[in-house]
């Protein structure tokens, strides 16, 4: 993947976040149980937050500050993939979300490493870190909710 300009790259990132938001919103609508629908609505809301943040960067109001690497708890690494289904439960939803965030992290990391332009490299690095933070939040939630006795 190659981007001609920083703005192109940002627009790509926005699109990604929009896709994610859209995906969670649709999933929320499919849920059989109302409490699960609310969970996915919240996930969608978080993606919306991401998108706003990237837009801020485009508007010249960068809210990113360089950050140290986010520790990876690797909670989801060995878990089996979960396919979205209307009878999902919270555990499955979190596994799904952790894996999705991890994939997004991997994508941005890859883009960062492949970027020749240093501004673009930094941007993708920051986006990757954002995704890592997001994943970590799901990991901690998973850790607390489903690994209390483990």
């Amino acid at each position: 993947m190659h981007f001609d300009s920083l703005v192109d790259a940002l627009e790509f990132a926005i699109e990604k976040e929009e896709e994610a938001e859209q995906f969670y919103t649709e999933l929320a609508e499919k849920m059989e149980r109302p409490h699960m629908a609310r969970i996915f609505e919240n996930f969608a809301e978080e993606e919306r937050g991401h998108r706003r943040m990237i837009k801020d960067v485009i508007m010249g109001r960068p809210s990113f500050v360089p950050q140290p690497r986010v520790a990876d708890l690797q909670v989801s690494d060995h878990l089996m993939d979960v396919a979205p289904s209307p009878d999902m439960d919270y555990q499955q939803a979190l596994i799904f979300a952790m894996k999705a965030e991890k994939a997004a992290y991997a994508l941005y990391t890859q883009l960062s490493e492949a970027s020749e332009d240093s501004a673009m490299r930094d941007l993708f690095h920051l986006l990757a870190q954002e995704e890592a933070k997001h994943k970590r939040r799901f990991e901690i939630e998973y850790d607390e909710q489903f690994s209390g006795e483990n």
Binding site: P34, I39, N42, E45, K133, E144
Partner: peptide
């Protein structure tokens, strides 16, 4: 039953960069 508190629960203990 709107369950408005779920977001904050999910985010507890982590930095807030949503809303």
């Amino acid at each position: 039953g709107s369950g408005a508190n779920t977001a904050s629960d999910a985010n507890a203990g982590a930095d807030q960069n949503t809303t």
